[in-house]
């Protein structure tokens, strides 16, 4: 189910759908910002420094999303992923592109400047892509990045001045955790035996 479908299925109230329908954000951004945009517009002017801090956090998150998109791009272009695994990788990359678009939209709405992506070569170097020799290597890299991203999103929640944005961070963490769980299963690894394994 796409986020468009989710939105149309009623997770956004009719009033919110109408309100967000006028905004120049992508459908994904609209869904992500559900319940926050109206408040953000006024808070951006009222909160000053606090909102600047929130923009900074969102830009760090955007950096994570740029890197994740690049990681899946490197995996897809490697020729090492085939069939259903490649399909899932492309799906996960599309989630990250949705996150990216939503974050860019939110940062812009708050009056900030969104950080840009680096070159694919830069990401390849930073992620040591030259060491990836098999589909398992790629899945393990993706698994590590997804876990790190989930924990990063959890770890910044207390720092948000705007609690609505903190909730957005939790939603992003949930997506990354979903990816991690699928990748862990694909790698044949056991799930954590203990509860509360993320953010810990």
């Amino acid at each position: 189910m796409s986020l468009d479908t989710v939105s149309q299925a009623g997770l956004l109230s009719p009033q919110r759908r109408a309100f967000f329908g006028q905004a120049a954000l992508s459908a994904t951004a609209i869904a992500l910002l559900a319940g926050t945009q109206g408040a953000l517009a006024s808070k951006a002017f009222a909160a000053g420094g606090d909102m600047a801090g929130d923009v900074s956090i969102l830009n760090t998150a955007l950096g994570l999303e740029h890197e994740a998109i690049a990681a899946y791009e490197l995996g897809a272009k490697s020729g090492l992923l085939k069939g259903g695994v490649l399909d899932v990788a492309v799906l996960f990359q599309s989630h990250h592109k949705g996150h990216r678009d939503a974050l860019i939209g939110t940062i812009g709405k708050l009056g900030g400047k969104a950080v840009g992506a680096k070159s694919l070569d830069d990401y390849a170097k930073a992620l040591n892509a030259g060491s990836l020799k098999s589909d398992k290597d790629i899945l393990m890299l993706a698994q590590r990045l997804e876990r790190g991203a989930a924990n990063a999103y959890i770890g910044v929640i207390p720092a948000f001045a705007d609690r609505d944005l903190a909730q957005v961070s939790a939603r992003l963490a949930a997506d990354e955790t979903m990816h991690w769980a699928i990748l862990t299963n694909a790698l044949g690894q056991a799930l954590p035996k203990e509860p509360l394994s993320f953010g810990a």
Partner: peptide, 16 residues
């Protein structure tokens, strides 16, 4: 560190 920091950091490369 591997669980919480590697979302943004590596030991030997600059990332986020």
């Amino acid at each position: 560190w591997e669980s919480r920091c590697t979302g943004c950091h590596s030991l030997d490369e600059d990332r986020i």
